[in-house]
C-alpha cells in the first residue's frame, strides 16, 4: 500500500466530516425553498415543500430501495477505457477522471443485490451526476452484469434509468450498447424473470430508445423528463415552443407509455408488491 492510498481515505474522511454552510442547507431547484439538508435527505431527496424529486445517485437509491438499505454492490468487469482515443475540448480520459472524483463512483451505472419486500432482487442505478449518466461501454457492461446476476440468482432485475443518452466520446461503440443491452433483456425474458424499469429525471436519447423502454413494468418518478429527442432539437424541428409538461412522466402516462408514476416515498412498497406478485405467485390465503 503506497503512502498515497494510505493517507487519502483519511484525508477525505476528515474533509467529509466538516459541516460547511454549503451543505447545511439545500435549496430546491424547483421552488427555491431552503430546507435543512438533513430534512431533505430524510425526505429521500424530495423537496418537502413542493415535492420536487431531486436527482439522486446510486448510494442514496440503494439505501432507499432495498429492505433496511442492506445491499451488496456487484463488481463490474473492466472495459476498454477511451476506446477511440477521443478528445474534444478536453481529453475524454480527463473527463472520466473528473467525473470519478466528483461522484466517488467508478462509472455511470452501479449494480447491487439485496432484498426488496423479502424477495431477492438485483438493482441497477444510473447516475446522472457521472457525465450525464451517459451510456458507453461501462454502462452497457454494468447492465449486462446486473441482468446476468439476476438470471443466475433467478431474481428480478430492476433498473433506475437517468441519462442524457449515449456517450458521445465512445462514438459508435456507445450506439452498440443499445442492441447489447437489448440482448440482456432478451435473456431475462427467456429466464422468465421480471424486468422492471423506473425512469428518473432525465431519461432521454439512446437509453430511452433501448433498455429504458423495454420493461415488463414501466414506472417513472413524478416530473421526470423522458423522451427520445431533446426539447431544443424538437423546438428547432417544429419551430414552435413545446407545451408545459411535454415529455414529463405524467405526459407519458397519459400517452400510454408508462404503467404508473410513483412518488419516491412509495417506490419501495410498490416494487416490493410487484416483485412479490410476479415472483411468489402463490402464498397461503
Amino acid at each position: 500500500m503506497s503512502w498515497l492510498t494510505r493517507i487519502r481515505p483519511r484525508l477525505t474522511g476528515f474533509l467529509g466530516r466538516r459541516e460547511t454552510p454549503d451543505n447545511l442547507w439545500h435549496k430546491c431547484r424547483a421552488c427555491n425553498a431552503m430546507v435543512y439538508t438533513k430534512e431533505f435527505d430524510e425526505n429521500l431527496g424530495v423537496c418537502p415543500k413542493c415535492e420536487f424529486h431531486e436527482r439522486i445517485g446510486p448510494k442514496e437509491r440503494f439505501a432507499q430501495v432495498f429492505d433496511g438499505g442492506v445491499h451488496t454492490r456487484l463488481e463490474i468487469p473492466a472495459v476498454p477505457e477511451d476506446p477511440l482515443g477521443f478528445r474534444d475540448q478536453k481529453k475524454y480520459t480527463d473527463r472520466i477522471k473528473a467525473a470519478r472524483t466528483a461522484t466517488s463512483e467508478p462509472e455511470a451505472m452501479a449494480v447491487a443485490t439485496g432484498k426488496i419486500g423479502g424477495v431477492d432482487a438485483v438493482v441497477a442505478v444510473q447516475n446522472f451526476a457521472f457525465m450525464g449518466g451517459s451510456m458507453g461501454l461501462a454502462v452497457g457492461e454494468a447492465f449486462l452484469t446486473g441482468a446476468m446476476a439476476a438470471v443466475k440468482a433467478r431474481a428480478p432485475f430492476i433498473i433506475f434509468t437517468a441519462a442524457g443518452g449515449a456517450r458521445m466520446q465512445e462514438g459508435i461503440l456507445s450506439l452498440m450498447q443499445m442492441p447489447r443491452t437489448t440482448v440482456a433483456v432478451a435473456e431475462l425474458r427467456e429466464a422468465g424473470l421480471p424486468y422492471i424499469v423506473v425512469m428518473t429525471d432525465p431519461t432521454t436519447g439512446g437509453v430511452t430508445a433501448s433498455y429504458a423502454m423495454l420493461g415488463d413494468i414501466q414506472i417513472a418518478e413524478p416530473g421526470a423528463l423522458i423522451g427520445f429527442a431533446g426539447q431544443r432539437v424538437i423546438e428547432n424541428t417544429i419551430r414552435e415552443k413545446l407545451p408545459e409538461g411535454f415529455q414529463r412522466a405524467e405526459y407519458l402516462l397519459e400517452h400510454g407509455m408508462l404503467d404508473m408514476v410513483v412518488p419516491r416515498k412509495d417506490l419501495h412498497a410498490t416494487l416490493a408488491r410487484l416483485v412479490e406478485l410476479l415472483m411468489r405467485q402463490r402464498v397461503a390465503a
Binding site: 437489448t182 430511452t208 430508445a209 433501448s210 433498455y211 427520445f228 432539437v233 424538437i234 400517452h255
Partner: peptide
C-alpha cells in the same frame, strides 16, 4: 424524426422494440 407528435406516440419505444 425529432418531432413532438412522434414523442407522444413513443418514438423511443418504437425504436427499442425494432431492435428487440
Amino acid at each position: 424524426y425529432p418531432g413532438a407528435e412522434g414523442e407522444a406516440r413513443g418514438q423511443a419505444e418504437a425504436i427499442a422494440r425494432a431492435t428487440q
